[in-house]
Each structure stands twice: as C-alpha cells, then as structure tokens.
C-alpha cells in the first residue's frame, strides 16, 4: 500500500532535517515579531473580546 510509494522517494531522511530548519526559523521569526510588536496593537487585540456592542463598555479603564 502506501509504504511502497514512500520507499520510492530518494533521500527521504532529508525531510526531517528540512522541517526542523523550517520550524526553527518559524519560531525565531515569531520571537522577533513579538519583541518588536507595537503596544497599540497588543492593546487592541487584548480588548477585542470585551468590546462587543451589546454590553456597556465597563472595560474602558483597561483600554489604555
């Protein structure tokens, strides 16, 4: 069944290494992004669940 298809792939061992590199880079990118993230954006996102129209916005005090 499936195993035969995969057996045919040359150098299948390289895939784990490639994916490790991809994952590592992705995480680095994420850290960098978090470090440079703007406070205004963070505040906006943080408060997103709280600002629906149906409730009185008591949360104003937390909206810096």
């Amino acid at each position: 069944m499936f195993k035969y298809y995969f057996e045919g792939i040359k150098n299948v061992e390289i895939f784990p290494i490639i994916s490790l590199i991809i994952f590592f880079t992705f995480f680095l990118g994420m850290i960098v992004w978090l470090l440079v993230m703007k406070k205004s954006y963070v505040d906006k996102m943080k408060n997103m669940p709280l600002q629906s129209e149906d409730e009185p916005n008591e949360s104003k005090s937390f909206l810096l």
């Binding site: 993230m37 963070v42 709280l50 949360s59």
Partner: peptide
Amino acid sequence: LPKAANRPVFSYK
C-alpha cells in the same frame, strides 16, 4: 475568561 472577568487577557503575546 476575559468576558466573565471583564478584563483583558493577562498577556496577549
């Protein structure tokens, strides 16, 4: 949780 507590999540990051 933020809804029920009526305050934003501690850290979005």
